[in-house]
Design a protein around this nucleic acid. Structure first.
Length: 426
DNA sequence: TCTGGGGTCCTAGGACCC
DNA sequence: TCTGGGGTCCTAGGACCC
């Protein structure tokens, strides 16, 4: 049976979450800022109409804030993460095969569904159910390959007449929409590739679809070749509906709320990220064999720039936050150069192993190992019940917390903290 | 003054081995 | 002047995604 995919994607997810719980935002231009209130990462349609660009720095938007009532929300990942979970639950009520692809989108397997209901009607049912359960507006794109489903979703967002659902299982419709779509808007074609394609005379999705896959492979890569095949309705990302593979790396990094110029603050921040990374690693039930630390000054400064990274293959795989922190602090000391205004530090864990599968430290005592593991389990449990960072390591605590994130317009954790649950007045 | 964070996959090139 | 060939593994870097 011919495979059919649906892509369900929340419209301006973060901004939509804010509006669901604060109806005074409805109809006003709203954006959600990245960490440190740095730049715009989500815009509702009113904000897009004002001309706010994705990734635009907040300091460039002052005039819109003052004159046009643009509302800037700090990012509230506790809220968005929980709303995402509810969104996925609603999708699971519609289809037995749901594969979350990111916080605000998921692929559904619609193969064979047409004998029961038309694709378009099904799309509307999903859209209505998500709206009813979560208050979030979504668009649905339906097609014979994931890349075309992405394109269909894009079309549903772009053309209001579609009412948020586009069925692109028909080849004539595929080609019509492809001819209206610049290559840069095709999934998998970014700014670099679209420039190179344009230099060869390929400007639209249709021209790309009609290119010879072998020729594309020779001049670009196997990745672009797959995109070409997908645009012709041949699914290549067939693993998209499979269970997501285990993570291969864990990165924890954040730019500082304000620049860091002393080693103590830097080490406190490194320790903080190292603990977080250890926590994530244990959440995956894995140990890591390789660890690296990177630090840098702002890439937007013209002078006095410094960026560097160092890694270490661990003598024994570990998921113990104390081990990870100790190595991370060592590396950070080696990376540190006096006299710079640092704006970022981060840690990267990789080379994952299954706990117990490898030879452990020859000199350690088995009882000690069990005790260490129990300590980490207890630590994670306390922090999960009492809230993040309820228990921390001494190194993380530092009187100067200027490196911590700025979030000046943070909304309440409406769905994940008892004290923040909204009340309805009748 | 102020410009995000967390991922994936692929490829080229070097080190090393026989 | 002439100086092998082929395979694997690892890493860095580039491109993409949301």
């Amino acid at each position: 049976m011919k495979q059919v995919y649906a892509l369900c994607d929340v419209n301006a997810m973060y901004a939509a979450c804010e509006s669901v719980f604060d109806p005074t935002l409805v109809g006003r231009p709203v954006i959600v800022a990245s960490n440190n209130d740095g730049c715009a990462v989500a815009r509702n349609k009113e904000a897009k109409a004002l001309g706010v660009k994705m990734g635009q720095p907040i300091f460039e938007l002052r005039e819109h804030i003052e004159k046009n009532g643009l509302v800037v929300c700090s990012s509230n990942y506790a809220l968005y993460g929980d709303m995402s979970f509810r969104f996925m639950q609603a999708l699971s009520a519609c289809s037995p095969r749901v594969m979350p692809y990111s916080i605000d989108e998921a692929f559904l397997d619609l193969t064979g569904i047409e004998s029961v209901v038309s694709y378009e009607d099904f799309g509307h049912q999903v859209k209505d159910l998500v709206k009813q359960w979560t208050g979030l507006p979504i668009c649905v794109g339906i097609a014979p390959s994931p890349t075309l489903a992405k394109l269909a979703n894009h079309g549903a967002k772009q053309y209001p007449a579609t009412n948020g659902v586009v069925d692109l299982t028909d080849q004539v419709r595929q080609r019509r929409l492809l001819s209206l779509t610049p290559t840069g808007e095709i999934w998998g074609i970014g700014s670099k590739l679209s420039k190179r394609l344009e230099a060869l005379g390929i400007r639209t999705g249709l021209q790309l679809a009609d290119a010879d896959p072998k020729w594309i492979r020779k001049h670009f890569s196997v990745v672009v070749e797959r995109t070409v095949r997908e645009l012709n309705g041949v699914p290549c990302h067939t693993d998209i509906l499979e269970v997501a593979p285990a993570k291969q790396q864990i990165v924890c990094s954040k730019s500082f709320g304000s620049p860091v110029t002393d080693l103590d603050s830097m080490l406190s921040a490194v320790s903080h990220h190292a603990s977080r990374a250890g926590e994530k690693l244990r959440g995956e039930r894995r140990e890591c064999g390789y660890l690296s630390v990177f630090m840098s000054t702002s890439r937007y400064r013209a002078t006095d720039q410094y960026a560097n990274q160092k890694g270490i293959a661990l003598p024994f795989p570990t998921a113990d936050s104390r081990e990870i922190t100790r190595h991370a602090v060592d590396l950070a000391r080696k990376l540190w150069r006096d006299g710079y205004r640092y704006n970022k530090v981060g840690i990267n864990l990789s080379d994952f192993r299954t706990p117990g599968a490898n030879q452990s430290d020859f000199f350690s005592q088995i009882e000690d190992e069990q005790r260490d593991k129990d300590l980490m389990v207890t630590l994670d449990r306390i922090n999960s019940i009492a809230g993040k960072n309820s228990v921390q390591f001494g190194r993380q605590i530092h009187k100067n917390k200027s490196w911590e994130m700025r979030r000046e317009n943070l909304s309440p954790a409406y769905t994940t903290r008892w004290a923040d649950i909204p009340t309805v007045k009748c």
